[in-house]
C-alpha cells in the first residue's frame, strides 16, 4: 500500500518529464507524436540565433548571480551560525530568510520599483537588463545559499575553530584553514542551486529586465503561451539536462559527507 503510493507519486512526477524528453527526439512536426528517431529539432535549435543569444545571456546571468549569491549567502550563513548575538540579529535573520517565502511576483515587482527609484535618484542602473537580472537572482540565490551553509555549520559545533584558536591561530587563519574548508561543500552545493534557480526563473526576470534582456526562460515562456512546438520541446530538454546536471551535482556535493 505504502509502496504503491510511492510508485504512483514517482510516476506522476517523472512520467510527463520522461515523455517530453523522449518525444524531443521524434521526427514528427507535431509534439508528442512519434515519427521516428531524429535530432532535427536540436539542429534547428543550434541554428536559431535568437535562442542562442537568449541562452548565452541566461548562462552568463546564472553563473554571475550564482557566484555573487555564493559569496553573500556564505557570509550570511556564517553570520547566522557562528557569530554570536549582535544588535539587530533577529531582523538580520528575518531579512535573510524573506526571499524564500516572498511570492515571486512580489519579489519581482519590489525589486523593479527599487531599480526605477534608484535610477531616478542616482542615475544607476542606467538601463535594465543583464545587470538588474543578475542582482535580483543573486538576492534570491543568496537566501538559499545561506540556508544550506547555516545548516552545514550548525551541524558541527564550533569546537574545531576553538581548538585552532587555542593552538595560536589568528581569527583569520582559523577561518581560512578550518571554517572555510568545513563550509566548502555547502558553498559548492549552494552555487549550483543558485545557478539552477537563476536558469529556471521567468517571473522575477520579466519584471526587472528591460527591452534589451530576454533570458532563455522568458523566451520559452512567450513561446509556450502560443503552445508547444517541437523546437520548444527540444529546448526544454536541453534546459532539463543542464538543470539536471547542476542539481544532481549539488545533491552529490552535500550528500558525500552528510548522511540524509
Amino acid at each position: 500500500m505504502r509502496r504503491l503510493g510511492l510508485c504512483l507519486g514517482l510516476a506522476f512526477l517523472w512520467l510527463p518529464v520522461l515523455l517530453l524528453a523522449g518525444y524531443a527526439f521524434s521526427d514528427s512536426r507535431i509534439p508528442f507524436q512519434w515519427g521516428g528517431f531524429s535530432l532535427r529539432w536540436f539542429q534547428a535549435l543550434a541554428a536559431n540565433e535568437r535562442m542562442l543569444e537568449a541562452a548565452f545571456l541566461s548562462l552568463r546571468v546564472a553563473a554571475g548571480s550564482a557566484t555573487l549569491a555564493m559569496l553573500l549567502g556564505g557570509a550570511t550563513g556564517w553570520v547566522l551560525a557562528r557569530r554570536g548575538p549582535f544588535a539587530g540579529r533577529a531582523l538580520f535573520g528575518a531579512l535573510a530568510g524573506a526571499p524564500l517565502v516572498l511570492p515571486e511576483v512580489v519579489t519581482g515587482l519590489s525589486l523593479l520599483l527599487t531599480f526605477v527609484m534608484l535610477q531616478g535618484l542616482t542615475g544607476w542602473p542606467a538601463e535594465r537588463g543583464a545587470t538588474t537580472i543578475l542582482l535580483a537572482h543573486a538576492t534570491m540565490g543568496a537566501a538559499y545559499v545561506a540556508v544550506v551553509v547555516q545548516a552545514r555549520l550548525a551541524g558541527m559545533d564550533g569546537m574545531l575553530e576553538e581548538a585552532a584558536r587555542d593552538l595560536g591561530a589568528t581569527p583569520a587563519t582559523a577561518f581560512r584553514t578550518v571554517t572555510l574548508p568545513l563550509m566548502a561543500p555547502s558553498l559548492v552545493a549552494g552555487w549550483l542551486l543558485a545557478f539552477t534557480l537563476s536558469l529556471d526563473d521567468v517571473v522575477v526576470a520579466s519584471f526587472v529586465s528591460g527591452p534589451a534582456g530576454t533570458t532563455l526562460p522568458m523566451l520559452v515562456f512567450s513561446m509556450l503561451r502560443l503552445g508547444l512546438t517541437p523546437e520548444v520541446n527540444a529546448l526544454a530538454v536541453a534546459i532539463l539536462l543542464l538543470a539536471f546536471l547542476a542539481a544532481g551535482g549539488a545533491m552529490l556535493a552535500l550528500w558525500r559527507r552528510t548522511e540524509l
Binding site: 510511492l6 507519486g9 514517482l10 512526477l13 517523472w14 510527463p16 518529464v17 515523455l19 517530453l20 518525444y23 509534439p31 508528442f32 542551486l193 539552477t196 536558469l199 529556471d200 521567468v202 526562460p217 520559452v220 515562456f221 509556450l224 503552445g227 508547444l228 520548444v232 520541446n233 526544454a236 530538454v237 534546459i239 532539463l240 538543470a243 539536471f244 547542476a246 542539481a247 544532481g248 549539488a250 545533491m251 550528500w255 548522511e259 540524509l260
Partner: peptide, 24 residues
Amino acid sequence: APLLMAVLLPFWTGFLPRVGAWIG
C-alpha cells in the same frame, strides 16, 4: 537517499519544461 533524490530532482530541473510537458 536515492528515493528522496528522485522526489527532489524534478523540483530543481526546469519549471517551464515541466509545464510544457503538461501542455503536450
